[in-house]
Structures are given as structure tokens and as C-alpha cells.
Simulated assay, not measured.
Amino acid sequence: MYDLKALDIFNSVLRHGSQTATAREFGLPKSTVSRRLKDLESQVGHQLLRRDANRMIPTEAGLVFEKYSRAILELTEDNREALSELSQEVSGDLTLHVHEGLIRGWFAKQMTHFIARYPHVKITLRTDTALPALDGKDTVCIWLGPVPEEVRLRQETLGRLTRGLFAHPDYLAHRGMPRHPRELSHHRWVDLLGDSGDGLILRHSREGKHCVTLPKSQIKVDRIALQGDAIVSGHGIGLLPHWIVKKRSHYHPGTLVPCLPEWHAAPLAVRLLHPDTPLPRRSLAFIEHIRAAIPADWAPTTSMHGAMSEANGEFQVPNPRFNVA
């Protein structure tokens, strides 16, 4: 039986190309790393690594052995997880992808609560502005906004964020408050990248919908936080979720003023996504934790009148494919 620690060290050297970096990763003396590799080569009966310039690279035998060493480590991890499942223990590695607009405040707080409750779970957190590919059973995503139809993932709608128009009071004092959506064409616009390039549809409870042709945005950003910063700096009017504005205004009151408050854009759905495969206990525990932590002021996922479509601003009955019981 191969020494599993030596297999870990061998694969680390392949990743880093350096025994020094591997020693740093494992917190071991470099001499210990070198000795464990030599012992492994003796056990295998072949030289596995050689130096090429300033990097350690695999020999021909090392390339062959790498495949089998990874298989051994993966099988060992699967065995550990299976035994953990039997013992009812929530543990292991969990990768979370979270839309950047949700990461501050609410999600950071919920992640802190989760790891305090499950101290044996190790989380890798990635923030995204584009929907990532989820290719592992231990990967969960919380997404804000549309999900392409071709995405084949299990999806659950957690809530919807209503949106309105906002500007800084100094900008409005200088340029004036718009009284109707048609007047937006005479204002400067701060666009979230790709959000309103084809125009903006606003809806009024009595006047119906109005399609606005927006001026070309002088500033386009790819993060909601940066869009809010640009609006607060007086660069123009922008479309923001009410929930995010409420959180921001708590710390910076008076910096965002609603414009045309009776007009609203289509809400953005907050969705939970994960591969459509049996999930490990840690993923299920996290999903249950998030379900119980949905903010009360997120719009409900359904209503007797249906929900506003993200694509065109029309009121429609939600697609049941996106609502998983």
C-alpha cells in the first residue's frame, strides 16, 4: 500500500513544479519532502521526477504513475466521505459560487453561521459576475438574475429582488428629477454591464409598461457595488435592486434617492443551483441552512398574479421548471 501522504506530496510537486512550494503548502521541511519522494520512488521502482531548469517535472514513469496516484487519492476520499455519511457527520470540502451582488452582508453572515455550526466543513468561496460551470457534486451556486435555458442544473428560486431607479441628490439638483420614463433619454445613465443595452422596460401599476431608449452609458461596470459607487459619485441614474439600496443606505443614508418610484423594472430572481446528482451531506446541510435564512423583504417566489418576467417585463406565471420543491 502506498503512503497516502507521499502521494499527496508527489501530486503537489507536479502542480507547483517545486519541492520548496510543496514544503510550504504542507508545512514541512524541504528535506522531509525530498525524503518522502525518494521513499515513494523506491517503492514504485522508478524515478518519478527530474529537474528541468528551475522546475521539477515528471519522468515518463511519473506521468504514468500520476494517473494512478490521483485515482488512489480520489478513491480514498470517496471512502472517507461514504464512512462520514454513515456516521451522520457533516464534513469535507464544499465549493460555493455566489453572485457578487449577494456576497456582502447577508451571505457573508450566513457563511459565518454555517461554519460555526459545522466546524468540520471546509469552504472554498468564489464570487462571480458570470454564471460558472458547476462540475462537482460538492459545488453549490447562489445566482442573481437570468439563467440561460441551456444550463442543465437543478434550480430552486429562493426569492426575487425588485428594482428601481436611483441617483445621488447632487446629480438631481443639477440635472433635475425625471417626471416620466421618456425623460430618462435626457439624463446620464450608469449601466450594469449588459443590463440594459437593448433598452429598458419599466412598468407602472396604472399606466402599464413603457420601453425606454436609454442614452449610451458613459460608465459601464460589471459589479453592482461598483455601479452603486458610480451613481453615488454623481455620474447619473441607474437601476438597482431595492434590497441592496436599503442595505447601502443603512450605512450611507441620503446618498441614493429614488427616481420615478412608481415605475419598476422586472425583478431579478435569486436562485440556488447545483448538479442534478445525489448530493453529499455537507451540500444538503448548506442548502437547508440557506433556505432558512432568506431575507423577509425579498419578494416571494410566486403570487396569485404570477411574477414579472426578467426577459420582457410582462407578468407571467413562473416556469415550474425553476421551482423545485
Rank of each mutant, 00 (worst) to 15 (best):
H204S: 05
S309M: 01
H250K: 06
L40V: 09
D78M: 08
T255G: 00
D170L: 11
C259P: 14
R163V: 13
L284Q: 15
Y171I: 12
L256M: 12
G92H: 10
L165G: 14
E262L: 01
R291A: 02
G145N: 08
L7V: 13
K122S: 12
P215A: 11
G164F: 07
R80H: 09
I123H: 01
H250V: 03
G254R: 10
C259L: 02
E85Q: 13
L144V: 06
P148S: 14
A173S: 15
F315L: 07
D195W: 08
R182D: 14
I294S: 08
P169N: 06
S84C: 02
D198H: 07
S185H: 05
D229W: 05
L125Y: 02
L239C: 14
V212N: 00
V90H: 04
V33N: 12
S185K: 10
N11S: 08
A71H: 04
Q43D: 13
A269E: 14
V190F: 06
L193N: 06
H274K: 04
L96H: 04
L49A: 03
K209D: 09
P148A: 14
I123Q: 00
D170A: 12
T213C: 10
T157K: 09
R248F: 02
I115C: 03
I231K: 11
I224K: 00
N323R: 12
P275I: 12
G208P: 06
K209P: 00
R70F: 13
G92M: 02
A269N: 14
E25P: 05
T301F: 02
D8P: 03
A130I: 09
G101M: 01
T157W: 03
S303I: 10
F322C: 10
R15Q: 05
F166H: 14
K38Q: 12
L134Q: 00
F114D: 11
P258I: 00
W189F: 12
L134D: 00
G313L: 06
T124M: 05
I142F: 01
L192K: 01
K209E: 14
V317Y: 07
K30D: 10
H305E: 09
M177P: 06
R291I: 01
K5L: 02
V317C: 02
I142K: 01
V90K: 04
F286H: 11
I142D: 03
V13D: 08
E100H: 04
E149A: 14
G306A: 09
Q88R: 09
M308G: 04
V121H: 08
P275V: 14
L272F: 03
V190D: 08
E89T: 10
D135G: 15
S18T: 07
V221D: 07
H252W: 03
D229C: 05
S18C: 04
G105I: 01
K220L: 08
D39Q: 14
D138H: 13
T157H: 04
Q47C: 05
L14I: 10
L144E: 13
A21H: 07
E207T: 04
S196W: 01
R321Q: 14
P278D: 10
